[in-house]
């Protein structure tokens, strides 16, 4: 069993931290874990991609081969579309519905708002969960819960290799104590929303 999870977003959104949470949770469960992260220049508002692979046998490549990812966790709709080639045919997409408009788009007067990207995902993939990141952050009182909210969505899909409880356990172990409460709140809130939808 190998689970391949691709995380993508914009520098500064917490994608790298999220990928480490998944990897460390896998290790805690006694599994092999590998990640490959883009950091450095991309930190500054550029596109960020993290590859995470968890398996019960040694993993050769830290990078996920295209068309084989089980889950795509996208912190931004346009970034989801940019990375969609990594997803397998019946893969799961967890996507934040809020577009991050780059300076280049503002300068050129482009009307990019992420809606075309979301429509494309919904038209072409059967397992797409939209997460209202702004709403959840507002409910939990912090912009910093976005990554946990998306992980909660992915955990609820059952394809992450981590259960919702496992995610809470990872939060307890890997994040500073003062952030636990708001992150738990985000997990519960996302679960509540997804149950309603189901």
């Amino acid at each position: 069993m190998t689970k391949s999870i691709l995380l993508c977003g914009v520098g500064g959104q917490g994608t790298v931290k999220a990928s480490r949470i998944i990897a460390l949770s896998g290790m805690e469960a006694g599994l092999y874990a590998r990640t490959a992260e883009t950091i450095g220049m991309a930190q500054r508002g550029g596109s960020v991609v993290s590859h995470v692979r968890i398996s019960d046998s040694p993993i050769a490549s830290p990078m996920i081969p295209k068309h084989t990812a089980d889950v795509l966790i996208a912190f931004e709709p346009g970034e989801a579309v940019r990375c969609i080639d990594y997803l397998k045919d019946d893969g799961v997409v967890i996507v934040n519905n809020k577009a991050v408009k780059p300076v280049t788009a503002s300068l050129s007067g482009s009307d990019y708002d992420g809606s075309d990207a979301i429509k494309y995902l919904q038209d072409n993939f059967s397992h797409v969960s939209l997460i209202d990141g702004d709403l959840i952050c507002e409910k939990c009182g912090s912009d910093k819960v976005l990554n946990i909210a998306l992980l909660a969505g992915a955990a609820a899909s059952g394809e992450l290799g981590i259960t919702v409880e496992g995610l809470k356990c990872a939060i307890r172990k890997q994040l500073p104590e003062k952030t636990h409460e708001m992150n738990f709140k985000a997990v519960d809130y996302v679960n509540g929303l997804l149950k309603q939808e189901a």
């Binding site: 991309a42 068309h67 346009g78 970034e79 969609i84 072409n124």
Partner: peptide, 19 residues
């Protein structure tokens, strides 16, 4: 075989910028 995807909508260029 790679699954053929329909043409993607345009994604914004996102060069790194000063914070």
């Amino acid at each position: 075989k790679a699954g053929e995807l329909p043409e993607k909508p345009k994604t914004p260029v996102r060069p790194p910028v000063l914070c």
